[in-house]
């Protein structure tokens, strides 16, 4: 269930627009945050009810956008850009390295639920390739050593490494 705070946030968001349906993406973000980073069917239903939209409509809209996850994700999402500029500078090796290091394939989550490894399209950081995004943070000009360092800091609870 969405918390009352989240429901209120969604209502307020929708009122900001000339048409309240324009708040749909923002509402889905709020719901995704509440549900631990993904959108189970009940989350979509709740958003639909709140916004007065058909449930199938909301599910279909949500499925269009890659940032709405319809499968559970780990505590941290590691998104590796493998598009052109990053792959020119070794993104594929970096992805393979991460996959080996975490012991999972792309799209999978580590058994302890800590990390989900994802391959993504251009992150808009091509001048500092190769690039990965972990949760909300970009990490640029990466090498295997830098990746080791970043993951160490995250797993030892020292938070973000820049």
């Amino acid at each position: 269930m969405l918390s009352e705070k989240a429901r209120q946030e969604i209502r307020t968001l929708c009122q900001q627009y000339p048409s309240h349906q324009s708040g749909l993406l923002a509402a889905l973000y709020v719901a995704q945050q509440e549900y631990g980073g993904w959108l189970p069917p009940e989350a979509l239903d709740e958003v639909a009810t709140l916004m007065g939209l058909p449930a199938t409509y909301v599910a279909s809209a949500a499925s269009f956008y890659t940032m709405f996850h319809r499968k559970p994700v780990g505590h941290h999402r590691i998104e590796v850009c493998t598009n052109i500029s990053c792959s020119l500078l070794g993104a594929d090796h970096l992805l393979a390295y991460l996959s080996r290091k975490l012991g999972i394939q792309v799209g999978e989550t580590t058994p302890d639920g800590q990390f989900t490894l994802l391959e993504v399209e251009c992150l808009g950081s091509c001048g500092t390739a190769p690039v990965i995004k972990i949760d909300d943070q970009y990490y640029e000009n990466l090498t295997e050593e830098k990746v080791d360092h970043i993951l160490d800091r995250i797993t030892t609870g020292k938070g973000r490494a820049s």
């Binding site: 052109i84 399209e121 251009c122 808009g124 950081s125 001048g127």
Partner: peptide, 9 residues
């Protein structure tokens, strides 16, 4: 979103 572009950012 165009791969190669990051000026707006």
């Amino acid at each position: 979103g165009e791969p190669g572009t990051f000026k707006d950012r």
